[in-house]
Design a protein around this nucleic acid. Sequence first.
DNA 1: AGCTCAACCTGCTGGC
DNA 2: TGCCAGCAGGTTGAGC
Length: 275
Amino acid sequence: MPELPEVETTLRGIRPHLAGQRIEAMVVRDPRLRLPIPPDLPARLAGALIGPLSRRAKYLLMEVAGGSLILHLGMSGSLRVVAAQAPPMKHDHVDLVLTDGRALRFHDPRRFGLMIWTPDPPAVAVSRHPLLCDLGPEPLEDDFDGDHLYRASRGRRVAVKSFVMDAAVVVGVGNIYASESLFLAGIHPARACHRVAAVRYQRLAETIRTVLNASIVQGGTTLRNFVQEDGNPGYFARSLRVYGRTGQPCLNCGTRLQERRIGQRSSFYCPSCQH
DNA sequence: AGCTCAACCTGCTGGC
DNA sequence: TGCCAGCAGGTTGAGC
């Protein structure tokens, strides 16, 4: 169930197995994803050479057939490299069968994921495709910092947690890492975003980077299991400080952690440490 | 323009 | 044990 670290982990896990490969066939068992898989996609991809893989926000981009395959894992999606003849499990909706006898297999119980093609190569698609062109900066790139958050928050009144989860502001900060980052920055998740000072946004930008990077490193520990045909992608145990810990003591001060809904999402925080 | 809410779908958990 | 309500890590689009 992917946030940015899981998508990055997925990218790193599948990339070496797809490099230089050719697609023998695309097998679609169920096209009903967030956007339907286009009926002509298998014909378009058959025989195509797989080019470079990249990531933009939580989207994976594969350069192929002169354009880009755009994938999203939604809430419950995962990708694995398996033996092509391995029997599909329930919710294994799509295989990209490779000429080396393996397959990139897309699994997504809730079908909030996405697999579409666009005629632009990835470098163009990121600035032109409707799903990608309005996205904010990558949190781990240089153009993301506290100044950016501060400026983007002026004139807005949403809760700061909703604000940092807005993909037009910064991408890749999902529900878990929003709570974790705000805790580390000492900012109350319900505070109106225009009432957070510049220096505190500086700190928040740092904690977002820290939390995401730490999680990517942890994700790396699951990589070695990633492609085993019987291996499960196993959501790695995370060292979460507040997420899901309602009623348990704050690791800083011992106060019981609280939970409330902000922007329809469960939010976790320490009422003493966060203001 | 900014914000809130509902919707997409399946599976799991907790309460009765 | 079974049933049912509620909730889940994302994102879009309608309506105010």
